[in-house]
Simulated scan of single mutants.
Amino acid sequence: MSSLEARRTDRTDLPLPAAGDWEYGGYPYGLEPLTLPLASPGSSPAAHRRSDGSPPPWPGTWRTPSPEFPANAAVDLTDPLGVDRLFWFRWITGHQVTFVLWQLLASVLAESAEGPGGEARAAERARRYVRGYSLMLLYTSSCPRSVYDRLIRPHLALQHRHLSGAWARDYHPVRSLLRGRLPAGLDDAPLREECRLNHHVHEGIAAKLVPSGVSLLQQTNQHQEQRFLHRDRLSSLYDCVFLTVRAPASYEQVVTQLVRRLHAIGQDLAANGLYPAYAPSGHEEPAELRAPDVARCKETLLPDLSRICDSATAAAS
């Protein structure tokens, strides 16, 4: 199933995933809090060596789960909350993965700004992280529109009636890159194309889940006085929705949390597929999400998760 060994690192008490039954969150589709630093943790090898000068331990290569495993990842359709629990897991965990990918992408940007050297490797890592963001958009939005309208959107509105992804703390350092404005050290055609694809997917997701085009932020009564909070408080509200806390964390700790989540997502996809037969939503997808390049993303989703793990763990080895 997976070559990831159950082991504990010297800097975090979170075990890396092991072959066996589902263990993330304590039960299938359970959640875990995410701990991230306020700024990117960086990825310079020298910054992450242990006190004896050796590099930190890293897991082996992540491999695609087999469809037969784990048996207990199948959703219990007799449980009234079974389907809701699956899609809430996807919404929260997929966003947590996105936050980590944004931080890792910011680390690549910081490295490219430090000077020449390793541009090709940095651009490759950046491409994989942008691809990972596109995959998480597809993963989190895989619910039927009825589930989004009944379960997800009301929960977001309860946190703040105008909750917006613009409040995401980790997005701002990578916003320019994702919009196609690449720094000189990372300006290559494949990365530019990956950013174009990400924008295409993002527009398609919005059209699928909110065909009216009216977000929570846009549901503002112009005749009602608005008392806006400071941006830092809005970002904290956004973090709280996705069980994310801010505290000092090393690159190793951040990547360990990423690997755990991608491992659980892989188990989910192996057991249920991107669009579960018992809760299909592929027919609700607009033309943007049926385009050939997006279809290829869906087909290579699990192998791409493996490559993201490889890039993240290799950066500090």
Rank of each mutant, 00 (worst) to 15 (best):
S2C: 01
R7K: 09
D10C: 09
D10G: 13
P15K: 05
P15S: 10
G20M: 09
W22G: 11
G26T: 10
P28N: 14
G30C: 05
G30M: 06
L31P: 05
S40Q: 10
S40P: 03
S40C: 12
P45M: 02
A46Y: 02
A47R: 10
R50V: 01
G53S: 14
G60Q: 07
T64A: 08
T64S: 11
P70F: 10
A71E: 07
A74P: 00
V83W: 09
F89G: 14
R90M: 10
R90S: 09
V97N: 02
F99K: 07
F99I: 03
W102M: 15
E111P: 00
A113R: 01
E114A: 08
G115V: 12
G117H: 02
E119N: 06
R121P: 00
A122N: 08
E124S: 05
E124P: 01
Y129A: 02
V130M: 04
M136A: 14
S141F: 07
P144F: 02
P144W: 01
Y148Q: 05
D149N: 04
I152W: 06
I152C: 02
R153V: 00
A157N: 04
R161D: 06
L163D: 01
A166N: 11
A166Q: 12
A168I: 06
R169A: 01
R175S: 14
G185D: 01
L186D: 13
D188S: 00
P190M: 08
P190Q: 08
E193A: 15
L197V: 04
H200L: 03
H200N: 01
E203L: 15
K208S: 14
L209F: 09
P211F: 11
L217E: 08
Q218D: 07
Q218A: 13
N221M: 08
Q222F: 11
Q222R: 14
Q224T: 15
F228K: 10
H230G: 02
H230K: 07
S236I: 03
S236A: 13
C240R: 06
V241L: 04
R246E: 11
R246N: 12
Y251F: 06
E252Q: 12
V255W: 10
V255D: 11
L258E: 08
L262I: 10
H263D: 15
A264P: 10
G266M: 05
N272K: 02
A279Q: 04
S281P: 04
E288L: 13
V294C: 01
C297K: 08
L302Q: 15
P303F: 06
D304H: 05
L305H: 02
T313N: 13
T313M: 12
A315N: 03
